[in-house]
């Protein structure tokens, strides 16, 4: 059950592109045609599915505070989490190269359709973002990490597919000249993001609402208390 929940959450609610703006550079650059967008999207799903579980293992057994305790007692107090950026990015870069070599060797046809995108992916924020969010959200097991990787990959895929389809159509519309190309793409993405926000209530009400509502209320309460306090002080001074 939690797999399904995390899966849909990472596709729709925490969509890489629309909720956190990850991988925007390639999203904007490679979305002019649907066919190339599909290629890049598939490559992103694949690489995320490989790197997120791998980085989960790294995080769990090497980087976290106390993670080295399997080496022996004296290593139990080490905290290497400050190295996580460099380890994650190194893993991603090597994995991308490895995947490229393997795919080239065993499936030339897949390489022809995916291969050109693989080097692009090493520097795609969505990939590193997937690993960093996996770390900061403290995903508890490797199975869930895999689900999270695949889910957010599919979310990214959906986003680039949708924008590419819209951009193919928009060529026939009368867009103001200064807004053509990049500008209108930004605005459409914004509108799509607003649309995706409506998925927020799909599962448990969404994280954002839960976190933000009490904060605002607390603020208002504080301010009200302040006001009351002021009034009381004013009354007291009046009495005096």
């Amino acid at each position: 059950m939690e797999h399904i929940e995390l899966f849909f959450k990472s596709i729709f609610i925490d969509n890489m592109v629309f909720a956190t703006f990850l991988g925007m550079c390639s999203y904007l650059a490679v979305s002019k045609k649907v066919s190339t967008a599909v290629g890049l999207g598939a490559a992103v799903i694949f690489v995320l599915a490989v790197t997120v579980p791998l980085n989960w293992l790294l995080d769990q057994y090497i980087l976290q505070e106390g993670a080295l305790s399997w080496l022996g007692e004296e290593y139990a107090s080490y905290d290497l989490s400050f190295l996580s950026f460099i380890m994650f990015i190194a893993t991603i870069a090597t994995m991308v190269q490895l995947v490229e070599i393997i795919v080239e060797k065993f499936s030339p046809s897949l390489y022809n359709s995916l291969g050109i995108f693989l080097p692009l992916i090493a520097v795609n924020c969505a990939i590193l973002g997937g690993s960093l969010f996996m770390q900061s959200r403290e995903i508890p097991s490797i199975g869930l990490a895999l689900t999270y990787g695949v889910g957010s990959g599919i979310g990214w895929f959906l986003a680039i597919l949708a924008i590419a389809a819209i951009r193919e159509k928009i060529r026939y519309s009368a867009v103001p000249p200064a807004l053509r190309g990049l500008g209108i793409t930004f605005i459409i993405t914004g509108l799509m993001a607003i649309g995706f926000m409506s998925f927020g209530g799909m599962l448990t009400g969404g994280d954002e609402k839960k976190e933000e509502k009490p904060k605002v209320e607390a603020k208002v309460e504080k301010e009200e208390i302040k006001k009351e306090a002021k009034e009381i002080v004013a009354e007291n001074t009046n009495i005096n």
Binding site: G183, G190, A193, I194
Partner: peptide, 11 residues
Amino acid sequence: LSPMALIVVGI
């Protein structure tokens, strides 16, 4: 909210 960032950059 995050979508407005995109629209502001678009503008």
